[in-house]
Write a protein that binds this DNA or RNA. Structure first.
Lengths: 169, 169
DNA sequence: ACAACCAGTTGCAATATGCAATCACATGGG
DNA sequence: CCCATGTGATTGCATATTGCAACTGGTTGT
């Protein structure tokens, strides 16, 4: 067996898996946008991901254990993507990326609301949010959905109908 | 003026800047490996970055305000790269990436030591480390260098002379 | 003078990405 | 049944990025 990795450094290995322009965009939309179907991820993407790139990333994530793919019971053709625990553990990472981007990139105010809430909430909010993701994607028990509701409604209010997704097929 | 960005989302904008296989590797080596010269970054890179990629990234980082480039006073030909505050603020992000990679990628034990120390130290250690980076790269006052010393020596001990960099020119 | 070293640049093949068109299959309505 | 629509992709092709070796123009040390 040959070693396909550039090095065994944890930062490097994470970059080999997620270090490109689209991977974390897809994860972000599943986690914070609650998108679970190919078509949702394709057409409701703020950045306009191409269908072949999306297909490739979803396939790679399933192969690497970040997502699971199951058939939708109501629609045989539809595939439902669910987060695994490793993917849920990316929440702190995405929160840090969002916090950094909010300070040091020309992010628009409306799209920064979500990052700001996550930053102000801190690790406690992240943990509550992750627990709710577990209840949605892994079937874990939950006590409420206040965090999801807060983040979702803040995001929807900020973006709302004004966002014109650049859908393609 | 046309808008060159895919969206104003802070996560997206951060990915447009740092979302590739090499950018954070270079930042990591400057921050944790204390490498400040082109040749150091090129030949002491664990992953073996190519010289044109390194040149491109350094140039982009200077353009985007993540690094500053100054001439070495002792050596006219040598260029010294220094971290700016935005780059120093990437420490928490790199710590999260390392922590995730340590759990969910096949990272080698020796290269995970640094990530483990950062994870166990938490935000307090990050802040102390960042303050020391400011004293080194920005000339800020400092009270000591225990954090750098700890991280550096742990890393050097783990990698030591065993690391054979794949240098190219 | 001369070898060694410095920060890059150049040329070129291989690979990855972006994008539109297309595919096979499933569902729903008449 | 027939056909429009929606599904998760795949294909072809142009462009962009990467990997790699060779090379450049200048500097330093002896």
């Amino acid at each position: 067996m040959t070693e396909p990795h550039r090095s065994g450094c944890p930062i490097n290995l994470t970059l080999e898996l997620l270090g490109d322009r689209w991977s974390l965009i897809v994860i972000r939309d599943i986690i914070f946008g609650n998108r679970r179907y190919f078509r949702e991820l394709l057409t409701q993407s703020e950045e306009g991901i191409a269908s072949n790139i999306l297909a490739d990333r979803l396939k790679r994530f399933v192969e690497n254990g970040l997502l699971t793919r199951t058939d939708d019971p109501d629609h045989r053709q539809k595939a439902l993507y669910s987060l695994t625990e490793p993917a849920i553990q990316l929440v702190p990472l995405l929160a840090q990326i969002g916090a950094w981007g909010r300070r040091y990139t020309p992010a628009t105010h409306e799209l920064s609301v979500r990052a700001q809430l996550l930053e102000e909430g801190g690790p406690k909010l992240w943990a509550a949010f992750m627990q709710e993701l577990r209840s949605i994607h892994l079937g874990a028990p939950s006590k409420g959905r206040s965090v999801i509701a807060t983040l979702q409604s803040a995001f929807e209010r900020a973006v709302g109908e004004s966002a014109r997704p650049k859908a393609r097929q």
